[in-house]
Computed example of a mutant assay.
Amino acid sequence: MNPYLDIALRSLAVYAFMLIAIRLTGKKELSQLNTIDVVLILLISNAVQNAMVGNNTSLLGGLAAAAVLFILNYILKKITFKNKKLRDFIFQHPEILIHDGKLNFDKLSHLGITDEELKEAMREHGVEHYKDVKLAIFEVDGNISIITGTKDLKQTHFKRKKVHKSLGLNM
């Protein structure tokens, strides 16, 4: 087999595996990476490097693998734009945390959003009580949007911080 075709096929397999693995592990907010996530990504990239290029450690082999990854990424973006089922599988969706003042405890628990984080987001939006929130939405980028329905609605952004559970430190 052509060595560059071999690199292309290996890169395709690794790309598909990583895409599915990240989606199935439920990672909600890649923009909010903590130290553990960064270490994992670095180690995975090192672990799969040989799986993509095999024994070919030449510059051309590395460029071929990188080119395949860029092409796959471009094609996948085009396909997901046209295919709703695939788009729904790959991309996250906003989650409603509060609707008409009622908290969705199951969703909050599932997403690991604490009461303190939700109250902080509300304060950022100038809201004091849950009952005043028409909608609180956990956005795919990690932001929590608050809609009150009042005329003095403030446009602010609350970026969720990762909290290290054992130390209680913000990361």
Rank of each mutant, 00 (worst) to 15 (best):
M1P: 04
Y4D: 01
D6M: 05
I7G: 05
A8R: 00
L9M: 07
A13N: 07
A13K: 14
V14E: 02
A16Q: 04
A16G: 04
L19E: 03
L19A: 13
I20S: 09
A21Q: 07
R23W: 05
L33S: 08
N34I: 07
D37P: 00
L40M: 14
L43P: 07
I44E: 08
V48I: 13
G54D: 02
T57E: 15
G62T: 04
A64T: 12
A65N: 06
A66T: 10
V68W: 00
L69D: 12
I71M: 14
I71N: 11
I71L: 15
Y74L: 13
I75Y: 10
K77F: 06
T80L: 01
K84N: 08
D88E: 03
D88G: 05
I90Q: 01
L103Q: 13
G112M: 07
G112R: 09
I113H: 00
T114P: 06
E117A: 13
A121P: 00
H125A: 15
V127T: 07
K134Y: 07
I137K: 13
F138A: 13
V140G: 12
G142I: 01
I144H: 06
S145R: 01
D152M: 10
D152P: 07
L153Q: 14
Q155I: 05
T156E: 04
F158S: 02
K159G: 02
R160G: 03
K162A: 09
V163N: 10
N170V: 08
